[in-house]
Amino acid sequence: MVKIYLGPAGVPLSSKKRNTIDGIRTVKELGLNAMEVEFVQGVKMKPESAEEAGKIAEELGVRLSVHAPYFVNLCSNEREKVEASKARIFDTADRAERMKADAIAIHIAFYGKLSPEECYQQVKSELGEVVDKARSQGIKNVKFGVETMAKDTAFGTLDEVVSISKEIKGVIPYIDWAHTFARQGGRIDYGEIIDRLKRELGLTHINSHFESLVFRNGKYVDEHLPIENDAPPFKPLAEELVKREDLSITLICESPELEKDALKMKKVLEELGYKFT
């Protein structure tokens, strides 16, 4: 049966202290088993703090992933911004490796003045350099997750993230189900995506985000809502997952409700027969 790791994007709102280690402990107390550490405003965690967080998470059985800073754009037309982006990705991977996180999520690029194909080639070159540097400096285990994006101006269609993952060893798609839903015009076939990731990339573990999005001016936009808004609906994904064999998945709840919605997701899965251990 599928193995599901479920938890919030960042320290739970109910955590008394607003730090990563207390967040991990709160996740465990809530009966959840995953947490994404948020470096979205910058990589400010010291290396030794990352190692300590990793030890606590391992002891408690909480699977960690990490979100890289938002200030990343490998297709910027300003060279210094590209180099700063690469440094942020590298630093994120370093801390993730130290805390034994399995993957990092990256908002990799905007097309800007480039065509999608030109941007793709630039991402391939620049990200490839970061991965090579990371591997040469002992960052051996963490996977570089290129996130699917909602905005038409951003690198991150499903096709793009699958393709780049084929070309650079150590790169994977980081599937944001709601972003993919938006990018596909408010449509999503969960089973088809899972099948594709297994068939084309041989993935046995999927890293992912889940939330709902705002509908405005005839389309879904990248503003997060609680999952009860069903944009996209969670239950069809849950139904798809519980019937799967030889698959594990991390579901990180990026709803504004964080652990409250993660626990709602847990309840849906349990009602379908899944048992969290």
Results as ranks from 00 to 15, higher is better:
residue 4 I to N: 07
residue 5 Y to S: 02
residue 6 L to D: 14
residue 8 P to N: 09
residue 8 P to H: 10
residue 9 A to K: 07
residue 13 L to N: 05
residue 13 L to Q: 05
residue 14 S to F: 07
residue 14 S to M: 04
residue 16 K to C: 01
residue 18 R to H: 02
residue 27 V to R: 08
residue 30 L to G: 01
residue 31 G to C: 11
residue 31 G to E: 11
residue 39 F to A: 07
residue 39 F to V: 04
residue 40 V to K: 14
residue 43 V to H: 01
residue 52 E to M: 11
residue 55 K to E: 06
residue 59 E to N: 13
residue 60 L to W: 06
residue 62 V to Q: 09
residue 62 V to E: 12
residue 63 R to M: 12
residue 70 Y to E: 04
residue 70 Y to S: 08
residue 71 F to D: 10
residue 73 N to P: 01
residue 73 N to W: 01
residue 74 L to R: 05
residue 75 C to T: 06
residue 76 S to C: 03
residue 78 E to K: 09
residue 80 E to M: 02
residue 82 V to K: 00
residue 85 S to V: 05
residue 86 K to L: 11
residue 87 A to Y: 14
residue 87 A to H: 10
residue 88 R to I: 02
residue 90 F to P: 12
residue 91 D to N: 14
residue 93 A to Q: 08
residue 95 R to L: 02
residue 97 E to D: 05
residue 99 M to Y: 12
residue 100 K to H: 09
residue 103 A to V: 14
residue 121 Q to G: 07
residue 122 Q to K: 15
residue 124 K to D: 02
residue 128 G to R: 10
residue 130 V to R: 07
residue 139 I to S: 02
residue 143 K to M: 08
residue 144 F to Y: 07
residue 144 F to R: 06
residue 148 T to Q: 07
residue 158 L to Q: 04
residue 161 V to L: 00
residue 163 S to M: 13
residue 163 S to Q: 15
residue 165 S to F: 00
residue 167 E to V: 01
residue 176 D to I: 00
residue 181 F to R: 13
residue 186 G to H: 04
residue 190 Y to S: 02
residue 192 E to D: 08
residue 194 I to W: 08
residue 195 D to H: 07
residue 195 D to E: 14
residue 198 K to G: 03
residue 198 K to C: 04
residue 200 E to K: 04
residue 205 H to I: 07
residue 207 N to E: 12
residue 208 S to W: 02
residue 209 H to F: 14
residue 210 F to K: 01
residue 212 S to H: 10
residue 213 L to V: 06
residue 213 L to P: 03
residue 220 Y to K: 12
residue 223 E to T: 14
residue 227 I to E: 00
residue 228 E to K: 09
residue 229 N to M: 05
residue 232 P to I: 12
residue 232 P to F: 12
residue 232 P to Q: 03
residue 241 L to Q: 01
residue 242 V to K: 09
residue 244 R to N: 09
residue 246 D to E: 15
residue 246 D to H: 15
residue 250 T to C: 08
residue 250 T to P: 01
residue 254 E to L: 06
residue 258 L to N: 04
residue 261 D to F: 10
residue 276 F to D: 10
residue 276 F to Y: 13
